[in-house]
Design a binder for these strands. Structure first.
Lengths: 216, 216
DNA sequence: ACCTGAACACCGTTCAAGT
DNA sequence: ACCTGAACACCGTTCAAGT
């Protein structure tokens, strides 16, 4: 979004929305660490201080960008059963976190109820109650599903890098092979015959295990 | 560790171990963001550049501190059954992450096999294989358990803050109550009668759900 | 070998000033 | 109202210099 813009944007081009869009572009292409006031201003063809007309400080920009990202969550179409609908919702949530790993680093987003999270929670609760779970179980189960998705997305980038890069993966396997076979029997065994398991499949395994607990 | 030290420590006091200990002290008391070369040097009664004699850059210090923290993982005593042993291991792992939330922000730790993770993985695999899981299931199940623990620990600090601070929790509940009762039926209902659920209990709920899948 | 001082590029942010 | 320039305190890190 708003790429190619170089020197001096005309007055009045700036707005909170434009800044948030540019911030998201930086985050998604070069990561959260690359998001500095200087870089952001540069991309917008403006001086860093211009941002402060629309946001109190950098943290407010980051928070707004995070909320905008979360709001991209698209509720899946209805499915044949509540269990399958549940599966699709958690999948979509996991995918959102994988597509935008910065979301997991924004504590601010967790500190308040936000519309996107409310939508997601409500949909999950709906499925769980129709499946016959009592109030307390539904709360616990929903929290567990989301935490599995978050934990899976948290390790996704680095673990997927192993799979994508054969040399990297070889190094890991050599490290596993170097472990003492007496104290690390299984790890040692795994180094020679590691089951094919993509990060997405690992997540699906966990999701499936949990969903079997609510039946169907 | 090494508190009270003010001006100018005598020559030769510094070492990689002392620096790591001081870094951990900063991380645990004031958080990862408070760990700057200036603050660390101050605590050690030394100039920032002195640190570079023992570490190539700040990232190397952070990584060493993270590895030292992970290494504090204490394997639980043997239990009556493998399921209970498994439960204790994951509990201990969760507790470690809750005690040192910075661990979840250190991607570097995930990028390599480290001794602590190897110990933990091996113990988990041992339990799962004795419980009769095949190779592939064991890998998937172990990954799922750890990801649940990580996800639970990730949201722990901010969510626990809700519970600890009645005013904060009231604000959240008012936000939930303000949601449209038509589109957010359950959320609205929950705002009036939220089941007592500490963050630790939520984690235990998830752990229990997963462990029931491997029987006993 | 171990530690320091000066210097550099960069960061977020203030303040007063321009249009 | 919207944007800028100068300035400030801080950050990680270099380099040459001291002991």
């Amino acid at each position: 979004v708003t790429t190619g813009q170089r020197r001096r944007a005309p007055r009045g081009t700036l707005s909170a929305e434009v800044i948030v869009a540019a911030a998201i572009a930086v985050i998604d292409t070069d990561g959260l660490d690359a998001l500095t006031t200087g870089r952001l201003a540069d991309d917008l063809g403006v001086r860093p201080m211009a941002l402060y007309t629309y946001f109190r400080d950098k943290d407010a920009i980051v928070r707004a960008a995070g909320l905008a990202l979360l709001d991209r969550f698209a509720m899946p179409e209805d499915r044949e059963s509540d269990v399958e609908m549940l599966r699709e919702i958690i999948r979509a949530y996991f995918q959102l976190l994988v597509d935008h790993p910065a979301l997991l680093k924004l504590d601010a987003l967790i500190e308040d109820i936000n519309p996107a999270e409310a939508r997601i929670s409500e949909a999950i609760y709906g499925c769980l109650e129709r499946l016959g779970l009592d109030h307390r179980s539904a709360v616990g189960f929903k929290a567990t599903l989301l935490r599995l998705a978050m934990g899976s997305a948290l390790v996704y980038p680095s673990r997927q890098a192993w799979d994508d890069n054969p040399a990297h993966w070889d190094r890991i396997r050599r490290q596993m092979a170097a472990l003492d076979p007496d104290t690390h029997a299984t790890m040692h065994e795994l180094s020679q015959d590691y089951p094919a398991f993509s990060q997405r499949e690992v997540f699906e395994f966990g999701l499936d295990t949990l969903l079997r607990a609510v039946g169907d």
